[in-house]
Computed example of a mutant assay.
Amino acid sequence: MAIEADRQVIMELPINIDVLAGLRETAKLAATHYSTQIEGNRLTQAQVVEALAGTHFPGRERDEAEVRNYYKALEHIESIVAANSPISETEFRRVHGLVMHGRRTPTPYRDGQNVIREAATGKVVYLPPEAGDVAVLMADLFDWINSQMATRELPAPLIAALTHYQYATIHPYYDGNGRTARLLTTLVLHRAGYGLKGIYSLDEHYARNLSQYYAALTVGPSHNYYLGRVEADLTGFLEFFCDSMAAALSSVRARATDTVTTPTARHTDDAAVLRTLDPRQRRVLELFRTSVVITGPEIATHLGISPRTANLLAREWLEADFLEIEDPARRTRKYRLSPHYERLVRP
């Protein structure tokens, strides 16, 4: 009930495009810092911002690459959300490729057994399923996710929680499983209507309660997947996840409410207009914050789509009175926002 109450308030807040962009960027930076910190990244939150801006920290090259790659993966998640298609297993293997190597190349699943050990003692804390079972388990997971997205038999927070648990439990890769599990959870929440304009992140709450996070994931009578973990009682993890989500939404509700009620904030109810736009249109608004006119290739690059698809979208948006042609006489089309939407990006 707390999650739903805060979600409703956040969705109804009159957030203009400039404030929204700032809140979204803050959330992405927080997610990048805390999700990589959980896996041992040593950069501070301030250093993460600097690293993304191009600053180098001698001796921390691996940490720099991790945060840059994770930020790229978050941006790719946004493009997947905007595409509004089923959550693809192959596409998510590309997300892992971004996380690990900074490239959108699908990563093959592990071909051998991996073991999760306690860092201090070397004690085995989890033995995931054998490599031969990974492909089937992952296919089943993505089938289940898309089925739940279609039927909504469970509340969205529980779908996201079970997705997170199962991905981490399968542990499909030798490395990067935690980061990609959290990214997949983020994607599921967005697609289920709980993205909340991209202005919150759960990763900080995991990082600040790390021992509880790991304890909640450690369920069943044995550390072996086949000796109890596969059929374990997941109540503890579901409770931890929902508590974390409630805390995150409460925090962002307070921050967003404070932002839109300050004297310097614009009080025009841009939120009502924004809700009439689809995810791709909202993302394209970001281009117009720095340019009065944009081109089809710029739309394609920004959304991560082909130039042909960008041109088709532009035609649809012209018909919907979202865009206008800057100069019909020119062979190369340039577009500007229609006056109805221009106020979203310029005072």
Rank of each mutant, 00 (worst) to 15 (best):
D175A: 06
I38K: 00
A119H: 10
E50W: 08
P128W: 01
Y109K: 05
V125T: 07
Q113T: 12
Y335H: 08
Y165G: 08
A207Y: 09
H96R: 06
L20E: 06
L158W: 11
Y341K: 00
R266G: 13
L158Q: 13
E342W: 11
I294E: 05
L187K: 05
A21S: 15
Y213M: 03
P86E: 07
A192H: 02
Y34R: 09
I80Y: 06
H205Y: 12
G178A: 05
P347V: 13
L196N: 02
T32R: 01
L249P: 05
E78A: 14
G178K: 01
T107Y: 13
F288Y: 08
P108G: 03
I170Y: 09
R62Q: 12
V260I: 11
I145W: 01
L29Q: 00
L52K: 06
L217E: 03
I77C: 04
R280V: 05
E66A: 12
V124A: 13
S291F: 12
S201W: 07
R346V: 08
E25Y: 14
M11W: 10
R255E: 13
R24L: 07
L154M: 13
L196Q: 00
W317Y: 09
T257F: 12
S250W: 07
F288K: 02
A207K: 08
I145T: 03
R266Q: 13
E286D: 11
A207D: 08
A192I: 00
K72I: 11
P347F: 06
E89W: 04
N209E: 07
K28I: 11
G176C: 10
D233I: 09
I10V: 05
Y213W: 06
L183V: 05
T301W: 00
A254N: 14
Q166Y: 12
G195C: 05
Q37G: 15
P157E: 08
T90K: 07
I38V: 05
T169P: 03
P155F: 01
G102K: 10
A82M: 02
Q37F: 15
G193L: 08
R60S: 11
L312C: 10
I87R: 06
G22Y: 06
Y226P: 03
M245Q: 05
T295H: 03
G228E: 06
K334N: 04
I38M: 09
S85P: 01
S147H: 15
F237K: 03
Y206R: 10
H267T: 12
V219G: 08
S35N: 00
T55H: 10
V252Q: 09
E64D: 09
Y225A: 01
R280M: 15
H223F: 14
R179P: 01
G304C: 03
Q148K: 10
E50I: 04
P58F: 07
V48Y: 02
L285S: 04
L43M: 03
S338M: 14
E12G: 10
